[in-house]
Design a binder for these strands. Structure first.
Length: 968
DNA sequence: CCTGCCCCATA
DNA sequence: GTATGGGGCAGGA
């Protein structure tokens, strides 16, 4: 029985441009003919013809064609003369490739279709119709959004470059409407790339909203008078015809007069020799080899075919002119001859501190051995790894650079590829040491205890190298050195430090790899360029180390660096490598629930507003609330717009307004969905099936860590809906999660530092600290404390930690500023030590320019004597907060540094997974839970000792459960 | 596609 | 009132 016929329609033209822009420029060996797009195209075709069940398309086509745009104007230019008028001409090095790609299609024995006056999209639309009529299914290979209007049962799009199938759901995601309404939305939103005008002020979001409400463009234009938003109504009326023209432009013709019927697109057998002849002519050596093998063709026996290359000339060989010697040129130019010129340039370069053309590219084991011996001889070496990703858990090692003296640096390329065949990972570039051999040799040096390894942000490099079974040690990190020495003064990135200390601007990464979607990964960077860039990094890092390391002792920061910074690095590296299991099903279930809630609220909100609008746009929301509905606006944002922040909306809701109340609920769900339930699954590592955050040791000024990609330090907990997200963070079967958190650590630290008797006594006795504060302030016995009074005291306690101001406290408690001032005065009367502490801290900051934590970490405030009173006040509050927040951060750092050893010593196999400022999360076998909790609590509570005995006890709450929500 | 802005999640 | 990271929107490239 014959299978259902299936037609592949390949959008050739758009593929050419995308291949050209996405792939690094590649030229034919020998004459430099640009062929990058051709190579990408051939790879795509070949891959497409190979894939069956496993491929994205999922089927073997019975019919196939590649469709191109014809040259010249199309019928759309008759409708609108400015259509695609902003298109720049094709780049010089792309032009000759148009013809070659058509040749390639023929070499693959596939019909290449184009027709003057029509675009490829119209032909694809017409063939799609014809195929459906004939009872066939259609797969469109392409990604152009204009083609999305064609999707329907029996027609799917497949984007081979992004590895993505586009069906109805994906179209709705993109346009907010089903495929049959796509043109209506495009007619309104327009398209700046194709110069389709649309209606001003309407983007895809708003267009989808309107079309979903009115059904189609004509109904909308007919009902435009009823639109509430003034500007939008006027624009819809004024630009109605423009919208109609736009719709005509985007609507794809389905009746293009085509010479070939569907039957003619029957998929021919591949003609091995014909294809090989073409590939040989292009000098695609690795593809030739691969395809010859697959098609059972003997490539050696086949001659390259002739190519008709249009729009490109081979470069003229410049014949050497006899007698035109250097001396001749010299005398002709007189005193400014090449010799003098060279002398001068040499002198200039010698004066320059850094010459990134002098670095060696290490290509043999002999050369590598020489560098490893140098490292051994010197006793230290700066190291930098180059990879193909910012995610150290997924990156592949591409090369390593080393430096042993200023100016003496090298780059060892290991996995650079040539441009050709990049869709398969490409051919390895010539002249690289086999990676396993090099890694083995490097491992011995990187693990050698007698050689100090110096790097910038070594957490990244060591995490990467740990995946190659290398445990880099001992180490020094210039990022951490700078952080310890200069937190608060400036950033600590290598480029910034280089300009500051070395007066040298390193080659920017984007200069060698490009930017945006044209950016290439480091393995595709030419080795010479890579050497200049990578070796320079090692050179710069070494010099920075030489500048910064001696400052440690001079500034008395050795202990902080050696106890709180450097040892934490491998601890965090292991935490990141372990990751945590996140249950995809739970999150996707929650996404669904949240989406339903949002849809329900959206309806209510639109009804209350008596119009549709984008609730997610603060601008539109503000217009409705404070413009049309005439509600009293409270705060303004710094750009002068009405604030629609939660506090403003909640105030309005408290006055009985429904609309803002619903918006607050909608916002909550929207936040939970987009930031957490939708985003987190994308961070599940495909190999480990776990989520691996990245901790930054040097991102905050106070000494706290920060977490990103994803941020696991801001997972919701306050609301019930939010807490559910925590249930998705689970222990693996047979294990439990343990959460252990410091209770009130910052207030305890404050009690210790400011030496406040009542606070210390309260903590000693285990009292409710906020109730105690309230009792002192308002003369109410603790036992009779009501929750409102306690809440006020709690806000004040937090306020103190944040460097309190009457303004801030008033805001927090919703009271007048004078009332807040009275509270603060009362607080200071009862706790005079706090006022003294705060004044002393400000004085210290003003006089020395920095404040210190209890473990000696310095936080600089260079702007604290600013003339700007706002700036000054801000710096003062920050300076008051920093020792408190920073000391607490130091304490948990100490706990973390010791934790792994303490667990092992106690016979626990628990793994520390996460840190959330005052909380540590562990995963442990069920049987070990009790013992582990004991060790964890003890280690955390005794963390300041023996360096320091706090005058208040530390208290840690800990619990175990199957997920994070229940454990916390 | 990038950037600034607004808003909001955590401690 | 402190310290962060990040998503969506809107406007200009």
């Amino acid at each position: 029985m014959a299978e259902k016929p299936h037609l592949f329609l390949i959008d050739g033209s758009s593929y050419i441009f995308r291949a050209y822009h996405a792939l690094p420029p590649l030229t034919r060996k020998g004459d430099g003919l640009p062929v990058g797009a051709v190579s990408g195209f051939c790879n795509m075709l070949w891959k497409l013809l190979q894939e069956k069940e496993n491929g994205l398309a999922g089927v073997d086509p019975s019919h196939i064609a590649v469709i191109f745009d014809a040259k010249g104007h199309t019928f759309r230019n008759e409708i609108f003369d400015q259509y695609k008028a902003h298109r720049p001409p094709a780049p010089e090095d792309l032009r000759p490739q148009f013809g070659l790609i058509r040749d390639a299609v023929r070499a693959f024995n596939i019909e290449s279709i184009e027709l003057e006056g029509y675009e490829a999209d119209d032909i694809i639309a017409t063939y799609s119709e014809m195929a459906l009529d004939a009872g066939a299914d259609v797969t469109i290979i392409g990604s152009d959004k204009d083609l999305m209007q064609l999707v329907r049962p029996g027609v799917v799009m497949v984007d081979t470059m992004k590895n993505k199938r586009i069906e109805e759901a994906e179209v709705i995601e993109k346009f907010g409407v089903a495929p049959d309404k796509v043109v209506e939305v495009q007619a309104l939103a327009g398209d700046s790339v194709d110069n389709i005008p649309g209606v001003p002020g309407i983007g895809i979001k708003t267009a989808a909203l309107l079309i979903n409400e009115f059904g189609d463009l004509e109904s909308l234009l007919a009902g435009a008078e009823t639109i509430k938003q003034k500007k939008r109504r006027e624009n819809l009326i004024e630009f109605a015809d423009q919208a109609r023209v736009s719709k005509e432009l985007v609507y794809l013709k389905r009746d293009v007069p085509l010479a070939l019927g569907i039957d003619a697109l029957f998929r021919n057998e591949l003609d091995g020799p014909k294809l090989i002849a073409f590939l040989k002519a292009m000098k695609f050596t690795s593809m030739t080899r691969r395809i010859a093998e697959a098609t059972d063709t003997v490539a050696d026996a086949i001659e390259p075919c002739d190519l008709d290359i249009v729009g490109w000339e081979p470069p003229q060989k410049v014949a050497a002119v006899e007698g035109d010697s250097i001396e001749g040129a010299d005398s002709a130019q007189g005193a400014q001859g090449p010799v003098q010129l060279a002398d001068k340039i040499a002198a200039d370069i010698a004066k320059l501190p850094i010459d990134n053309s002098s670095y060696q590219t290490v290509r043999t084991m002999e050369e590598l051995t020489h560098w490893l011996n140098e490292a051994k001889r010197v006793g230290y070496v700066s190291v930098d790894t180059e990879t193909d990703s910012l995610d150290a858990m997924q990156a592949n090692l591409v090369g390593v650079s080393l430096a042993t003296e200023p100016g003496k640096a090298c780059y060892i390329p290991l996995a650079h590829v040539t441009g050709e065949g990049d869709m398969f990972g490409g051919g390895l570039a010539e002249g690289q040491i086999p990676i396993t051999e090099a890694v083995t040799a490097l491992k011995a040096m990187l693990e050698d205890p007698s050689i100090l390894k110096i790097g910038q942000n070594l957490k990244y490099d060591t995490l990467l190298l740990s995946r190659y079974d290398i445990d880099l040690a001992p180490l020094d990190d210039t990022l951490l050195l700078s952080y310890v020495l200069d937190a608060g003064k400036h950033g600590h990135g290598m480029d910034e430090l280089s300009e500051l200390w070395l007066d040298h601007k390193p080659i920017p990464f984007k200069e060698i790899a490009g930017t945006g979607k044209k950016q290439i990964t480091f393995d595709k960077v030419e080795i010479d360029k890579a050497t200049a860039y990578a070796a320079e990094d090692a050179d710069v890092t070494l010099r920075l180390w030489m500048v910064l390391k001696p400052r440690l002792a001079a500034d008395h920061m050795v202990t902080v660096y050696e106890r709180l910074e450097r040892p934490l690095l491998p601890v965090l590296r292991r935490m990141e490598a372990r990751g945590i299991t996140v249950d995809r099903q739970i999150l996707s279930g929650l996404s669904g629930t949240f989406a339903q809630g949002m849809a329900r609220l959206e309806e209510e909100i639109h009804a209350l507003a008596e119009q549709s609008f984008n609730i997610g746009s603060p601008k539109q929301l503000g217009d409705i609330l404070f413009g049309q509905q005439g509600l009293p606006g409270g705060k303004k944002t710094k750009t002068g717009a009405w604030s629609t922040s939660a506090s403003v909306l909640e105030d309005l809701a408290a006055e009985g307004h429904e609309l803002p109340a619903r918006v607050v609920e909608w916002r909550q769900l929207s936040k939970l969905k987009s930031t957490y339930t939708d985003a987190l699954p994308g961070f599940i590592n495909p190999q480990t099936k776990r989520v691996h955050t990245s901790y930054s040791l040097a991102a905050t000024t106070t000494g706290r860590l920060s977490s990103s990609d994803p941020n696991l330090q801001n997972i919701p907990i306050r609301t019930e809906a939010g807490r559910k997200i925590r249930t998705a963070f689970v222990a693996t079967p047979g294990n439990k999660l343990i959460s252990a958190d410091y209770s009130q650590i910052e207030l305890r630290v404050l009690a210790h530092m400011a030496d406040i008797g009542q606070l210390k006594k309260a903590f000693d006795e285990g009292l409710d600290i906020h109730a105690m504060t309230a009792s002192e302030m308002f003369n109410v016995p603790i036992e009779e404390m009501d929750s409102a009074t306690r809440r006020r005291a709690k806000a004040i306690n937090f306020g103190i930690i944040y460097g309190i101001s009457a303004f801030g406290l008033a805001n927090q408690l919703g009271i007048s500023r004078t009332e807040a001032k009275d509270y603060i005065d009362m607080y200071f009367t009862r706790f005079p030590g706090i006022r003294t502490y705060m004044e002393d801290t400000k004085t210290a900051a003003r006089e020395q320019g920095y404040v210190e934590t209890i473990f000696g970490r310095k936080i600089h405030y260079p702007e604290i004597n600013s003339k700007n009173p706002n700036m000054k006040a801000f710096q003062e509050r920050a300076a008051i907060n920093a020792p408190i927040q920073g000391s607490a951060a130091d304490i948990i750092r100490r706990a973390m540094v010791r934790m792994e050893g303490a667990l092992v010593e106690a016979g626990s196999s628990a793994r520390m997974l996460l840190q959330v400022h005052d909380e540590l999360i562990f995963e442990v076998a069920e049987a070990e839970v009790d013992n582990t909790i004991k060790v964890v609590r003890d280690t955390m509570e005794s963390a300041p000792m023996p360096a320091l005995q706090l005058s208040v006890p530390l208290k840690v709450d800990a619990a175990a459960a199957d997920n994070w929500d229940e454990a916390h």
